[in-house]
Design a protein around this nucleic acid. Structure first.
Ligand SMILES: NC(=O)c1ccc[n+]([C@@H]2O[C@H](COP(=O)([O-])OP(=O)(O)OC[C@H]3O[C@@H](n4cnc5c(N)ncnc54)[C@H](O)[C@@H]3O)[C@@H](O)[C@H]2O)c1
Ligand SMILES: NC(=O)c1ccc[n+]([C@@H]2O[C@H](COP(=O)([O-])OP(=O)(O)OC[C@H]3O[C@@H](n4cnc5c(N)ncnc54)[C@H](O)[C@@H]3O)[C@@H](O)[C@H]2O)c1
Lengths: 222, 222
DNA sequence: GAGATATTGTGAATAGGGTCACGACTTTAC
DNA sequence: GTAAAGTCGTGACCCTATTCACAATATCTC
């Protein structure tokens, strides 16, 4: 069922939502055609990479012309959305979790946070941005057909909750806690570790200073 | 200054804060030695990769023994510049920005959000988690020696603010907006695009379902 | 319609990381 | 002291992704 358009590299798959978003922008601006070069400037991805990415889906463009925005958009809509909304559950309505709920995650895409869980009785029973908050004790009972979970609980709770989620049929986890959770191999876990992202950025700045390609050395002191 | 221990792969550099964090845990647990295999299980990184990562810094371990936790920790502290705090400014104290300020970013590391900016007069003048919030009009005036910025403004504002930040001497940006900003080459920008992370996770689940491989992949000889 | 120009799609080369597998060395057991 | 067990550091290999560079093909100009 899902295995037909098979060989798309993962790196490409991660860029698809980005392309999709920018194509939407272009479409709203009334643009009818776009070249890989233009798109490259907008999304900051090399134009050859864009052409290669698109080519995995066949010949979507026309030589000497570029790509038809509307056609491309329709194509991505089918490819990304699969006209099927994935239900997402959010666990841990604290600082981060609340922000995500308010963001009411996606306007034009295939995911929706349908429900949330917390251990705090003050939060249970309320809703944020239309998403109801249940008590974590009701996890198994309420989870329903949600297949993806966003994990924003304290890190000490992460492993235990992850196990319950897996038991309840979740197949993907977006883990914002610093804990590295252990789950069966069939479960996909993506870590987003904000503290590490910041530390890594600082490390790169200090250890791999980017040269401004112009020779103008303005005061890099030792 | 920074160019001596040069050839560390970026992938390695991104894992260093992770190692550091787990080594700290081990140290607090009173553990004195650790093998790459043990560490591997904790951080979910292949043990050969860990050894390779460490080896870029020289021979930090002892054959037949493993690594001395305290020594390794001291080494990473120096390498990651834990002693020297990088000042960070946060721009846009909305849902996400507020969460970050409350998190009071890092306990055991080298970065600190020192100040924040927003355009909303109701927020200006207050502080969150001890971080003062200034008006965005005072950006140039107050920014001081902050060298990194966290960007959590509406995406329409991102490019304009980024330009002002660059003008004011910022060298790194952690961009949480969906906008792809254009900056001089010497500026390092890391994008964290939460919507895309979620979409990509969903895409992977649908198109690359992980088989629950019962066969464990411990291809150890014998 | 012809020549100039634009742009794709892709083979080939390059870059970048991850993993295997084993020699070298250390520690542990007895 | 000797043998067994444990673990590192790394050469060799493999895989994935990126980039170059160009033939093929389309559009545009007049
Ligand atoms: N806020 C940030 O900026 C930030 C940055 C990086 C990482 N993180 C990580 O994200 C996670 C959440 O951070 P936060 O700032 O939102 O923390 P928080 O303390 O504000 O929120 C945690 C929420 O989880 C709830 N909770 C606690 N135990 C629970 C359980 N067993 N089941 C269900 N809910 C439970 C709490 O009631 C609370 O609402 C933490 O692991 C943190 O380390 C946060
Ligand atoms: N909240 C989320 O979960 C989430 C998820 C993914 C991406 N994002 C992105 O992160 C960014 C922030 O999201 P948010 O939910 O915190 O939005 P928000 O609207 O809650 O916050 C934006 C803040 O920026 C301030 N602001 C507006 N214009 C400004 C300016 N010119 N200078 C300084 N401050 C200004 C506003 O006053 C507000 O406080 C957005 O670009 C959003 O797309 C947010």
């Amino acid at each position: 069922m899902s295995g037909e358009q098979n060989k798309i590299p993962q790196a490409t798959a991660k860029r698809l939502p980005l392309y999709y978003r920018f194509l939407n922008n272009l479409h709203h601006q009334g643009k009818q055609r776009v070249s890989s070069k233009e798109l490259s400037e907008a999304v900051k991805v090399d134009s050859a990479t864009i052409r290669r990415d698109f080519s995995y889906f066949g010949a979507l463009g026309k030589k000497g012309y570029g790509y038809n925005v509307e056609y491309l958009l329709g194509f991505f809509r089918k490819t990304l959305d699969q006209d099927e909304v994935t239900k997402v559950a959010l666990i841990g309505v604290g600082n981060l979790g609340t922000a995500f709920l308010h963001y009411n995650f996606m306007k034009n895409n295939n995911t929706k946070i349908e429900l949330a869980f917390d251990a705090d009785p003050k939060k249970v029973g309320t809703d944020i941005g239309g998403v109801p908050i249940y008590h974590i004790d009701q996890l198994e009972e309420k989870l329903g057909s949600a297949s993806v979970a966003i994990l924003t609980v304290p890190s000490s709770e992460a492993q235990g909750i992850a196990e319950r989620l897996v038991e309840s049929g979740i197949v993907g986890v977006l883990n914002f806690t610093p804990a590295r959770i252990t789950v069966p191999e069939r479960i996909r876990v993506h870590h987003i570790d904000l503290a590490i992202e910041l530390q890594a950025l600082v490390y790169f700045i200090k250890h791999y200073p980017l040269e401004g390609e112009h020779e103008d050395h303005n005061g890099f002191k030792e």
